[in-house]
Amino acid sequence: MREIVLDTETTGFEPGEGDRIVEIGAVELVGHVPTGRTYHQYINPQRAMPAEAFAVHGLGDDFLADKPLFKDIADDFLTFIGDAKLVIHNAAFDMKFLNAELGWLQKPALPMDRAVDTLIIARRKFPGSPASLDALCRRFGIDNAARTLHGALLDSEILAEVYLELIGGRQPDFALAQGGTQSSKQDAAAVRVGPRPEPLPPRITPEEIAAHTAFVQAMGDAALWKRA
């Protein structure tokens, strides 16, 4: 099963008010294990970066000026994600922006049912507890010291670790669930250990045998070890 853990950074909160995506980061998982394949792209939003957004992302107008437009990277991004599930923290926000950008290019929207929202999973699993990415890192002991600013690829890498903890660790269903996939059954069979062709020789010494016999004899005829 292929999944893409994804994060975006934006100029603000509402694409309908002119806000745009400025960065996309994504990490590929196969069978709940990171493959090492990632996608990362900065994007020129064609508008001034608000001061509050710069404070969060550290991405300024000069840095973004020579970056490609979303229309220039859209096909590469869509190719990378393919038809995989999209694992996103607060999925409604990122999907809103991605679909706005795709809509402006007359491209089909990404269905919401493709999104796996880790924010919803965390709130269901830990009701009443903080469910931000930083809070979940603290809960699971995940090192996020490098997260001094929001960055899409770093946040995706951290979210991948959080997601795996939320669903029970890496390969949570590996060879455990009845009716698992054929490949998981084959993998399990490959590591199953059969009986030894010859028993291992005893490692107890003659002195230890004699000491045990003497110990049992000293316990009298009622000793369990003397019963037929």
Rank of each mutant, 00 (worst) to 15 (best):
35 T>R: 03
173 D>I: 15
169 G>P: 11
177 A>I: 14
204 I>R: 12
51 A>Y: 11
33 V>R: 13
217 Q>M: 12
46 Q>K: 10
182 Q>F: 15
227 R>V: 08
69 L>Q: 10
115 A>Y: 00
179 G>F: 07
12 G>S: 00
68 P>W: 04
175 A>T: 14
203 R>L: 14
112 M>V: 10
152 A>G: 07
22 V>G: 09
224 L>G: 15
27 V>E: 01
171 Q>H: 15
28 E>F: 02
212 H>W: 12
147 R>N: 08
58 G>H: 07
156 S>V: 02
73 I>F: 04
160 A>Q: 05
113 D>W: 08
112 M>L: 14
145 A>R: 11
93 F>W: 02
153 L>D: 07
152 A>C: 08
95 M>N: 09
35 T>A: 05
127 P>A: 01
108 P>R: 06
96 K>W: 04
27 V>Y: 03
187 D>G: 14
208 E>D: 13
93 F>Q: 00
125 K>M: 07
144 N>T: 09
66 D>N: 09
3 E>C: 08
149 L>Y: 11
15 P>V: 09
69 L>P: 14
151 G>I: 03
216 V>R: 11
191 V>Q: 12
31 G>K: 00
97 F>V: 00
93 F>S: 00
46 Q>A: 15
117 D>R: 04
29 L>P: 00
204 I>E: 15
83 D>I: 02
141 G>N: 08
50 P>Y: 03
114 R>K: 08
149 L>W: 10
180 G>R: 13
34 P>H: 09
55 A>I: 11
172 P>R: 06
223 A>K: 05
146 A>H: 15
181 T>E: 11
94 D>K: 00
118 T>S: 10
131 A>T: 05
137 C>L: 02
181 T>A: 10
40 H>W: 09
113 D>G: 08
27 V>D: 02
31 G>R: 01
226 K>H: 09
